[in-house]
Design a binder for these strands. Structure first.
Lengths: 116, 116
DNA sequence: GAAAACTGTCTCGGGCCCGAAATGATCGGG
DNA sequence: CCCGATCATTTCGGGCCCGAGACAGTTTTC
């Protein structure tokens, strides 16, 4: 299976998916929040505030605020690290996994509907 | 050329692209702004405030504010419709076209680097 | 055990975005 | 010619996000 795509198709795919996400209005995540969410679910744990801040190239308070908002939405959870109680470990949730699963399926569907 | 992709690949692709956009920090567009930008550049003109509001499922002031911000960034331009001077027509700009071209190339590059 | 280093969070001032409603400009039917 | 309909924008009150810097808790170093 190959993932070949032309720039014009790529943009149309991006457009179709973001349009659905905006219209759905479920979560209304910012680009940063979406990136944090995907990083937590796609990359190997553990995920800390500092680690996420470095990876995204933003300040730590920005990560804290994003985790506050996404925690309210039940998309992620926080837990103190027992090994080093200074650290906060970002954990996945069932709701977050389901949300990303829907996003993945949406992308696949839009990719399949793309003109050849 | 086919555009087949599995959900896990789709999510990784989305993650890789948004991470680059967040880290780059060029524009920092919200999901709505990005959707507006792509709609203006991918769909046939003319584009009006009301038409964009209906398409995205948001209020007209939200479109006006997005156009204000993106106008400051030179990504789109506004012009009065001479046929019906109540309408405002959203126009493309060179900067906007270049921005989307970079996004398209970024998606293609990330798609090509995806594990099979 | 005290001090330095490190973590995440809070505070501050400023800016942007939100939807609802009001406003100003323009068009069109009667 | 006028009054209602239709544009886009502005106003309003409220909320979230931003980075810089201060802060409290924890660990490590000496």
């Amino acid at each position: 299976m190959t993932v070949e795509i032309r720039p014009s198709q790529a943009l149309k795919l991006w457009h179709d998916v973001t349009l659905d996400l905006v219209r759905g209005g479920d979560a209304d995540l910012s680009a940063r929040q979406m990136t944090i969410l995907m990083t937590v679910y796609l990359e190997a744990p553990p995920h800390t505030v500092r680690g996420l801040a470095e990876k995204l190239g933003v300040t730590k308070p920005a990560i804290t605020r994003a985790l506050d908002t996404m925690g309210r939405l039940k998309l992620v959870a926080r837990r103190r690290d027992d090994k080093d109680r200074r650290n906060v470990i970002v954990q996945r949730t069932v709701e977050g996994a389901l949300y990303l699963e829907r996003v993945g399926d949406l992308i696949v569907a839009k990719a399949g509907a793309l003109p050849r």
